[in-house]
Simulated scan of single mutants.
Amino acid sequence: MAREDLGALLRGLLGGGDGEANLLGSLLGSLGGSTAGSGNPLDGLLAALGEGGLGHQAHSWVSAGANEPIDGEQLAQALPPDTLQGVAQQAGLPTDVAADQLAQVLPQAVDKLTPGGQLPQDTSLEDLIKAHTPHTP
Rank of each mutant, 00 (worst) to 15 (best):
L79G: 00
L79F: 01
G7N: 03
S26G: 15
D5W: 10
G52P: 01
A8F: 09
L54D: 09
D111M: 09
P94H: 09
L54N: 10
Q85H: 14
A64L: 00
G55D: 01
L27N: 11
G19M: 14
I129P: 02
D5S: 14
G19F: 02
G16H: 14
E51L: 14
L119Q: 01
Q89N: 04
A47T: 07
D18G: 08
G92I: 06
A109G: 08
P134L: 03
A64S: 01
Q57F: 03
L119E: 02
I129M: 03
P107S: 07
G29Y: 08
A76W: 05
T136R: 15
D43A: 14
G86C: 12
A66N: 01
Q74A: 12
L49W: 04
G44K: 13
D82W: 08
T35S: 15
D122G: 10
A98G: 04
G29W: 05
Q74D: 01
S34V: 15
D5A: 14
G33W: 08
P120I: 04
G15H: 13
A91I: 06
L28A: 12
Q104N: 08
G37I: 13
L113D: 02
A109V: 05
G52I: 08
L113S: 03
G15L: 11
D43R: 14
N67L: 05
P80A: 14
V87N: 02
G55H: 04
G39P: 13
D71Y: 02
G50I: 07
A131M: 01
E20K: 12
N40M: 10
L9C: 06
P69V: 06
G44P: 12
I70W: 10
D82T: 08
L31F: 11
E68I: 03
D71V: 06
G37Q: 12
H135Y: 10
D122C: 11
L46D: 01
Q118S: 07
Q118K: 12
